[in-house]
């Protein structure tokens, strides 16, 4: 299980990650989707204890990334978006080195490595030098490497990027198998359809903020004319909550921490929106402001699904 709480990362004045909150239950495959530069790798690096957060924190299986980075490392298998391999090392030796780095005994390694190579379809390459493998094979080898200490959580940063369609299918098959093994998988991509099929839940990240979370169909639903409306009140909050909850076009009503601002999704058109405001005023609800929140979800969604059919 992964819990991310108000995670923020600034590079100087630039905010790469802005108060990210996310909970990923055990056994879930979570797809983290966003354009290049959205903050996916930054998030993953922090979870992998490679980058310190500016503020906020995260827990992996209950271990705090800031206070217990060592325990966190043994819980996760991490695959970076860009990585290199040692030259002059054979596939088996490559895995053996990382196995040893996780403190596995020689016996354990000898038993485990053939199984892992089998899993990622690289058994036939066990004596090849790592640096001459194709990109797809290297990706798969790196995936096998991230599994060597049998971690419960996998953090995979764009494992399918740069692969040809065939290699991508192969990668997807392996990930499906890992899902069946019950791993919690956090996987990123800048193309939604690449993930849509295999993820239980997706989160869309844009400019360091999580702009939507849910199943793919949930999100598509939201795009069909749902608006986020913010109402600031001058007292009478409970009355206002009762009023808005009764409206049939309103859903997911929440009260903000300041105690005087309500937030809800509204499914009506412009005319119905005017009607809603009018009715609220007639009920003597003290509204200071009534505004429609700008969401650029639609733009983001267009961008990450550009040119590909969503099944």
């Amino acid at each position: 299980m992964i819990e991310i709480i108000n995670l923020t990362k600034k590079y100087g004045k630039f905010t790469a990650l802005d108060s990210l909150n996310l909970t990923i239950e055990k056994g879930t495959v979570f797809g983290f989707v966003g354009q290049n530069g959205a903050g996916k790798s930054t998030t993953f690096s922090i979870l992998a204890t490679l980058l310190s957060p500016t503020s906020g924190t995260a827990y992996i299986n209950g271990y705090n990334i800031s206070k217990e980075p060592k325990q966190v490392r043994s819980q996760i298998g991490y695959m970076p978006d860009f990585f290199g391999v040692y030259d002059q090392l054979k596939t088996v030796e490559y895995l053996d080195f990382y196995g040893a780095s996780y403190g596995l005994s020689q016996n354990e390694r000898q038993k485990l490595i053939p199984q892992l190579l089998e899993l990622v379809n690289l058994s036939h390459k066990q004596d090849s030098y790592v640096d001459v493998l194709s990109r797809g094979m290297k990706q798969r080898l790196c995936l096998a490497r991230s599994l060597i200490h049998d971690p419960e959580v996998l953090i995979l940063d764009e494992p399918a990027s740069g692969l040809d369609p065939r290699a991508r299918v192969e990668m997807r098959e392996i990930l499906k198998e890992l899902k069946h093994m019950g791993k919690t998988i956090l996987i990123s991509s800048h193309i939604l359809p690449e993930l849509a099929e295999m993820c239980d839940t997706i989160g869309i990240i844009d400019q360091g903020r999580l702009v939507a979370e849910g199943s793919v169909s949930d999100i598509q639903q939201r795009l069909k004319g749902e608006k986020l409306i913010i109402v600031k009140l001058y007292g009478g909050v409970d009355k206002a909550i009762r009023f808005f909850e009764d409206q049939h076009l309103v859903s997911k009503l929440t009260k903000r921490d300041d105690g005087a601002t309500l937030e809800f999704l509204f499914q009506g058109n412009a005319k119905e929106q005017v009607g809603l405001l009018k009715a609220a005023l007639m009920q003597d609800i003290a509204i200071i402001s009534f505004s429609e929140m700008e969401t650029n979800l639609e733009d983001v969604f267009m961008e990450i699904t550009k040119g590909v059919e969503l099944s």
């Binding site: 690096s45 992998a48 204890t49 490679l50 060592k70 490392r73 043994s74 996760i76 991490y78 970076p80 860009f82 990585f83 290199g84 391999v85 040692y86 990382y98 780095s101 996780y102 403190g103 790196c142 490497r145 200490h149």
Partner: peptide, 11 residues
């Protein structure tokens, strides 16, 4: 680009 991976191990 091999350091990151090394640093995520238990060593």
């Amino acid at each position: 680009q091999t350091l990151n991976i090394l640093l995520t191990t238990n060593q």
